[in-house]
Design a protein around this nucleic acid. Structure first.
Lengths: 187, 187
DNA sequence: GTCTATAGAGTGATAGAC
DNA sequence: GTCTATCACTCTATAGAC
């Protein structure tokens, strides 16, 4: 019997792409096994809790990635440089809008009610980290918070519209506009 | 035996709310019958094509509603008044952010691949109608198009974030901001 | 041999279609 | 309500590392 050995982190990344493309309800176990080439045995070995555990660990994995790559720098490094890097990281993470935000998609249907804390936490931390960096550029707290919220809203909306229209130029154009808006406000 | 008679337009509106809350895959026939109180017999009488036909007719219904209430006025009436009304219509249609955009939600998962033309059409018409009204206020075409895209992106992003955070204030705040942005540009 | 990870048929429940 | 297909999930067998 042929046997391929996977690491759990590989399994998380592979299954994440299936949830990202199909949504939580749309990602059936048979689609997951077909697309990832992971057998049910492997999947239930890694995730004894089934689909719910898969989704929970995927969100934790995404959250950890953003914490390292974006939230941490926004909180600790030179604010203008960290914000500049945020735009690049965002563009590359979402593949210029060809990849949707799994957590944003989960928020739109009843999947939200399965993972309310993870979904809220992800967006709250993004807004707070960006608002903190904007505050350190000298902006008043309220203005920084409003701009951070505007940026995250723009990113999510651009992902929706890019995918709805199948237009690969929308996401980059929106990131550039948001970048200009934040730079105009923070000097 | 009690008997309730429905019109097809009632059935469309009832089923629409189930799809809106649960998504296309999440809306099982048993959930649809349970929530709408429509029997399977009634549902297959109205929609012989099953779930796919339900979703298609719901999207056509939404599109027709927006055509009458928003796109038409934006295309034909005094542009500033029509745009002002658009903000009110948008706020009330989406119940200040407590109701998600069904077509936006469909765009995010593989449901998009079932209805690509309806999804693209809805967003294209919204952006084009708003851009047309902005052009008639005197804005150059390119600027009008960019602002219209920004507005639709902001609306979709605000719906995602409002639902993700369970925050009822985000949507109204975002509409007010977008309104100010468009007014600043179109005088 | 033991042990863990994988394969995949098999389970009852429930899906959508009619 | 009845149908078949498919659902999430379980379980046994076994491959390969030690």
């Amino acid at each position: 019997m042929a046997r391929i050995v996977f690491e759990k982190s590989d399994a998380i990344a592979l299954v994440a792409e299936v949830f990202r493309e199909l949504g939580y309800e749309g990602a059936s176990m048979s689609e997951i096994t077909a697309r990832t080439k992971l057998s049910k045995g492997s999947l239930y070995h890694f995730f004894p809790g089934g689909k719910e555990q898969m989704a929970a660990e995927i969100m934790a994995h995404i959250d950890a990635w953003f914490a390292t790559e974006m939230f941490g720098p926004l909180e600790k490094e030179a604010p203008r440089a960290a914000i500049a890097r945020m735009w690049e990281t965002t563009d590359s993470y979402f593949r210029s809008g060809r990849r949707v935000c799994l957590i944003g998609a989960f928020a739109l249907d009843e999947t939200r009610d399965r993972f309310p804390a993870a979904i809220r936490g992800y967006f709250h931390r993004w807004i707070d980290a960006l608002a903190g960096a904007l505050t350190r550029t000298g902006l008043p707290g309220a203005a920084a918070k409003a701009l951070a919220e505007e940026a995250v809203i723009g990113i999510q909306g651009a992902l929706t519209l890019a995918r709805a229209l199948g237009d690969d130029t929308i996401f980059g154009r929106t990131l550039a506009r948001l970048k200009r808006t934040l730079e105009a406000a923070s000097g």
